[in-house]
Amino acid sequence: MALNRNHVAMFALVAVSCFVVGCSARADENERGADLYRLCAACHGESAAGYEAVGAPAIAGLPQWYLEAQLKQFRDGTRGTHFDDIMGMRMRPMARMLMRDGDVEAVSAHVAAMPVARPAPSLTGGDADNGKAIYTATCVACHGADGVGNQGMLGAAPLNHSSDWYLFRQVENFRAGVRGARAGDQGGALMRPMVLQLADEQAIKDVVAYIMTLAN
């Protein structure tokens, strides 16, 4: 009879482990995206809130279309291949590691589903009131009054989830042609003349300070 009891115990054990494995598979619909994200977490952080020391911005909760578009730009060299784009060159190889078909989509879906985690502002000296005037005059047409971006406008980026130091650097990059100046980069070609209208560094700080007041 002892043999029989062992059989029952064995069967129960197998059944329980099948149940556990099945559940954990179901718990994360996008297991592949989560798996791929382990690479990204090294710089963007576990909760994708960014890590300023390595220049990696907050990306949690950015819309899927924007994430996919940027990862593809990094991969095909539209972004991250300018001589002075030191931070872009750090990100580009990471996007190139997403090699299999569907990798970009899976990791983007995972990041898009993460709760927005915008860090507190770290830049000082920006005048949000003046920034509001600039934003309403020059940026609103594409990025929207709430800064949520506009996919239809050649992929105008959502700005309301990003850290201020990152926004500041991107505006400078667009102005210097470090980003958005590659032949065939239509979004960049649209964006560059707009930020070139900003008078000086103070104007950039002002408009970024205003963007930081927009709700996530």
């Binding site: 991250g80 291949t81 001589f83 190889p93």
Partner: peptide, 8 residues
Amino acid sequence: QQWAWSFV
């Protein structure tokens, strides 16, 4: 640089 070669 981390992680690219640039040339002049």
